[in-house]
């Protein structure tokens, strides 16, 4: 983006022991985050782990209790207006005017950011594939269209950094794919993106993934490296009855984690164990084993291992 080049920023988000307390509750606990320009940072964690609180602090909407943060070089505590002028934000609950058309919503949000050029409005409609629905009232649009329009309103002012807080929550798989193509498109244009999600397949699409739990950042790395760092071997277990099998596998001391995965089970066996361990335990309890095959670690495995 022009802005990034002008400021020649290499670090877009920088936090030092960023902390937020609500009474006795520490929502974000000494967060140290360094996000270089051009990243698509996936921000994962259970509900209540501090993801949204982090984003609100980085947007300058919520004052840190301790520590500091800069966003695009601006201090979030003292320069929050500059922060918001140069960042975009879209949350899971899009704020759109149902009675206005798609185009009118864009004009409205453009006005909020001082963007009034009709050419920019039309460019947004075109580049996000909204041209055909531009004159429809938002209330009559499907979730997928509204989501895309919400994204358009978040980037109308050409932000250098875009925060997406669970943007695909409750959206069908095809619409989610289309939305991610838009994210890549924005990333290719030079916008740095921080996106929180509960979909682990989306985490795989990020250049960096941070995992939060109880306000703390437990890990931050490329998805491939996070997966490679997962200790133990993953096994996929096809058995019947599945729940009985799960309860048995969970009891095996060398199994560090076991859970449902689509129509079968996944279990992580710590070093020193192997598939025989699983076979023996299941057979001893009379569970029918259909197949036990080695699996590759997934982001869901990483997430569960860290936050389960």
């Amino acid at each position: 983006m022009a802005l990034l080049m002008a400021n020649n920023l290499e670090t877009v988000i920088h936090t030092e022991n960023l902390t937020r307390r609500f009474g006795d509750f520490v929502a974000v606990d000494s967060l140290n985050l360094e996000v270089p320009a051009g990243q698509v940072l996936g921000y994962l964690g259970p509900n209540g782990s501090g993801k949204t609180t982090t984003i609100r602090m980085l947007l300058g909407l919520l004052h840190p209790s301790a520590g500091r943060a800069t966003v695009l070089g601006y201090d979030v505590a003292t320069q929050s207006e500059q922060v918001r002028a140069h960042t975009g934000y879209m949350s899971q609950k899009f704020a759109l005017y149902g009675e206005l058309t798609a185009r009118e919503n864009l004009i409205f949000y453009g006005g909020v950011y001082g963007v009034t050029a009709a050419a920019r409005i039309d460019e947004m409609l075109d580049s996000l594939g909204l041209h055909d629905v531009r004159n429809q009232r938002v209330a009559s649009l499907s979730t997928g269209w509204r989501q895309r329009l919400a994204l358009a309103t978040a980037i109308i002012h050409r932000p250098g950094l875009l925060f997406l807080d669970e943007p695909t929550s409750g959206v069908d798989p095809v619409a989610r794919r289309a939305f991610w193509e838009l994210i890549y498109e924005l990333s290719a244009q030079g916008i740095t993106i921080m996106v929180s999600t509960h979909y682990m397949d989306e985490a795989e699409y990020c250049t960096q993934v941070g995992i939060m739990r109880d306000g703390r950042l437990l890990a931050l790395d490329e998805p491939a490296r996070l997966k490679a760092a997962l200790p133990g071997q993953v096994w996929e277990i096809y058995a019947d009855p599945l729940l009985d099998a799960l309860e048995i596998v969970e009891q095996i001391p060398l199994v560090t984690r076991a859970g449902l995965a689509s129509d079968h089970l996944r279990a992580i066996v710590a070093e020193g164990g192997n598939a025989d361990l699983l076979h023996t335990a299941l057979a001893a309890q009379g569970v029918r084993i259909l197949a036990i095959t080695p699996g590759a670690p997934s982001m869901e495995d990483v997430f569960m291992a860290l936050s389960g």
């Binding site: 259970p46 509900n47 899971q92 669970e166 929550s169 682990m200 729940l243 997430f303 936050s307």
Partner: peptide
């Protein structure tokens, strides 16, 4: 109706572990 939308993977897993025994 979409009981696990907007829910993290750990909670999702817990939810299904409650549903499946009902079918048993």
């Amino acid at each position: 109706d979409e009981p696990t939308t907007g829910v993290d993977p750990v909670t999702r897993q817990d939810f299904w572990r409650l549903i499946m025994p009902l079918l048993r």
